[in-house]
């Protein structure tokens, strides 16, 4: 790597520096828009005690779910975790801790974390178990709770295309949490379908400016579909 060229050519380089007990923020919604190769590399490295911040935890045998197989995850911060039998088992055994966080609050925690905002007030979760123990403040007669932002030692992101400078664009709803995750990692690694030369992406269409990105790697993706539902005439 030199100058602004962020491209790395091996997954070892991509995840270099990841250690036990670190916090990893991962983009993706269900199995859509997940950095498949980076997750596989975390499994291969065998690091343990991870805190993973991601909307979901994959499914049995795919996505973040594979990190449960060798008990690499200590804690998940997610909004919904219902698709995974191994997850359920480790949770009930007390081997895994979960911090359930409302989806919008989770997105905002990442966004704020990346933007240098340590905490924010939101009405979401007030008066519910999520609000327990959190500071409450009224604005214009309505109560809000204080939520702290999140940053990670690593952020792992899936984008569609990136240029060598790390400018990224996402495709369709595979965008989801990825742009926020990209801003919130001390080291942000982006796995993409295609790497292009600087200047090939339209600057006005960039979703994630390269300043947030430390490493870019070209991956290959299975893109597994969680729930294939067809129009009536094709069923």
């Amino acid at each position: 790597m030199s100058g602004f060229d962020k491209v790395v050519t091996s997954y070892e380089q991509a995840m270099q520096g990841l250690k036990d007990n670190m916090t990893v923020i991962a983009g993706g919604f269900g199995l859509c828009g997940i950095p498949e190769g980076l997750i596989a590399q975390i499994k291969k490295q065998g690091v343990k005690g991870l805190t993973i911040v991601s909307n979901n935890c994959g499914v049995d045998g795919f996505g973040l779910g594979i990190l449960l197989e060798d008990k690499q995850i200590k804690k998940m911060v997610s909004s919904y975790v219902g698709e995974n039998a191994l997850f359920e088992k480790q949770l009930l055994n007390g081997e895994l801790e979960v911090e359930l966080t409302p989806q919008g609050t989770l997105a905002e925690k990442m966004r704020a974390g990346g933007a240098g905002i340590p905490a924010f007030y939101t009405a979401t979760g007030y008066g519910t178990p999520v609000g327990e123990g959190k500071e409450v403040k009224e604005f214009n007669g309505r109560p809000y709770i204080l939520e702290e932002s999140i940053t990670g030692d690593f952020a792992i992101v899936k984008a569609w295309k990136a240029d060598r400078f790390g400018n990224c664009i996402y495709r369709h709803t595979a965008q989801n949490f990825n742009p926020m995750a990209a801003t919130a990692g001390k080291i942000t690694v982006v796995e993409v379908e295609e790497i292009v030369e600087p200047g090939e992406l339209d600057p006005t269409q960039i979703h994630t400016p390269g300043i947030y990105v430390d490493r870019v790697i070209k991956g290959t993706f299975e893109k597994r579909i969680e729930r294939k539902v067809l129009a009536k005439e094709d069923r």
């Binding site: 909004s79 359930l100 409302p102 979401t124």
Partner: peptide
């Protein structure tokens, strides 16, 4: 078993 609130808390608050 609690699977999570997803976006429901945000939706009812907003």
């Amino acid at each position: 078993l609690v699977k999570g609130m997803g976006g429901a808390m945000d939706l009812v608050a907003g």
